[in-house]
């Protein structure tokens, strides 16, 4: 009797999971949809060799990676440079979508923002708004693909 009830619950749960699994995970604040409409808002903290700024021209290893990501996903992109405090605040308030600056996975900001999986073997990561799991999923699938090359 008891087991039967439980197996119904399990069955329901599995069906529910299967039906919904194709578009999981989603973004609570719809970052990814916003990015496709309005382009990727990229925060940049100057930190060579990862991020370099000359006038309004941005370069560096992380900038290159993100440019590849944007073109692969056919995204417009816009750079916003600033200091760490301002830009992490913007990230926390979902005003920008990603923050570059040679952060590692031990970053002190990890309580305020989300981290991607490391894109190299030195534990360097990108920062993203907390809980935007679809954006994270897409970024990480790009990172995994790149790491394998």
């Amino acid at each position: 009797m008891y087991y039967k009830q439980l197996s119904y619950k399990l069955l329901f749960f599995l069906t529910f999971s299967a039906v919904t699994s194709c578009n999981i995970p989603k973004d609570p604040e719809d970052s990814w949809e916003d990015i496709q409409k309005n382009g990727l808002q990229i925060g940049v903290i100057v930190n060579p060799p990862y991020t370099i700024q000359q006038n309004s021209f941005f370069s560096g290893t992380e900038i290159e990676l993100i440019q590849n990501f944007s073109s692969e996903n056919k995204l417009q992109s816009r750079y916003i440079s600033g200091n760490e405090t301002d830009l992490t605040d913007k990230l926390e308030n979902y005003e920008i979508d990603i923050l570059l600056g040679g952060f590692t996975k031990k970053s002190i900001w990890s309580k305020k923002v989300g981290l991607t999986t490391p894109y190299d073997n030195e534990d360097h990561v990108f920062l993203i708004p907390k809980g935007e799991n679809k954006l994270l999923h897409n970024l990480e699938s790009f990172i995994f693909k790149n790491k394998r090359k």
Binding site: P25, P28, E29, G114, L115, T116, T117, I128, P129, K130, G131, E132, N133, L136, H137, E140, S141, F144
Partner: peptide
């Protein structure tokens, strides 16, 4: 907002 990422498992994300 809990951030839940992904990992590579048997060649699949």
């Amino acid at each position: 907002h809990p951030t839940i990422g992904s990992m590579m498992f048997m060649g699949k994300q």
